[in-house]
Design a protein around this nucleic acid. Structure first.
Lengths: 152, 152
DNA sequence: CGATAATGCTATGCGATATAGCGATTAATG
DNA sequence: CATTAATCGCTATATCGCATAGCATTATCG
């Protein structure tokens, strides 16, 4: 520690600790693991949860649109939606004006369950990010958003 | 945007955009993809790269120790080290005092290659995080480090 | 009409992660 | 000292996230 302060950087070499990507991965993995642990009973995982949220926030949207919003591949949302369909969490309605697409919306059950799940996600994050103040958490969010939105 | 300012939060509901985990995933995925794209020719991926860096920073360390440092499972580093061994990037030396362990170090070739790779990683990050100032990048690093180190 | 594009989907592979277990070896403990 | 516990490197296996290629259907547009 003392050495580091005296010699902060060795001839332009970058340590793993100095790479943003490294910390991004560690933090993301920590968050994912925490999420899975928290929702193991519900069999709910981060990506499916985000799909559920996206449908809730954009009722009547399509799977392709959800993919664009969340940065998923169209191929990979199929099984997620299929499971939600089986579990009765979503409804798919064919569009009279375009027979290619299905309009997605939450079922009544999902609508009643989601708020509680969301609250638990927020509560979970507050625990996971307890080393950060509310302001730092907002800063983190804002910086991260700029990173991925700038990368597309 | 104007609406958001007027009505910042709807009855305690959290949107996906307000969840740190969501932005963490998006940013991490963006970074991972960028890394893979950048090092496709070398067949070098983020995790193996971090393993290489860790060995470089802790010469004479063991695979179990690397796993502890990087948060990997012992089972999952085996194939990574095996490939590095095949490619002549690392050397494994048995320890005379403990026949269970192998002391790991970079080969001469790896030692000559790694600095260039590291420089490219840094350069790559500077492009990817161009929307952030140097100070914001440090802030991001620091916040992320606190997140995952606080979670363990 | 013909070309192009979008949609939902199948199939497939890979990388990262997790768990369970094993033989060998060392450390710890009674 | 002898038994137990812990550690190490490793195999095997499973799941998830992500990517690519391709396909039939349907819309769109020149």
């Amino acid at each position: 520690m003392i050495q580091k302060a005296i010699e902060p950087d060795v001839a332009g070499e970058s340590r793993l600790e100095d790479l943003v990507g490294y910390h991004l991965r560690r933090a993301s993995v920590a968050d994912m693991n925490d999420f899975v642990r928290c929702f193991r009973a519900e069999g709910l995982r981060p990506i499916p949860f985000s799909v559920l949220c996206a449908i809730d926030e954009q009722p009547g949207t399509t799977s392709a649109e959800i993919c664009r919003i969340l940065g998923l591949q169209r191929a990979n949302i199929v099984s997620i939606l299929a499971e939600f369909d089986e579990r009765g969490l979503i409804e798919r309605h064919s569009d009279p004006n375009d027979q290619r697409i299905q309009r997605l919306s939450l079922s009544a059950e999902a609508k009643s369950l989601l708020p509680g799940w969301r609250a638990r996600v927020v509560e979970r994050e507050e625990k996971l990010f307890h080393t950060l103040t509310a302001g730092e958490r907002r800063t983190l969010c804002e910086l991260l958003a700029r990173v991925w939105k700038g990368a597309e």
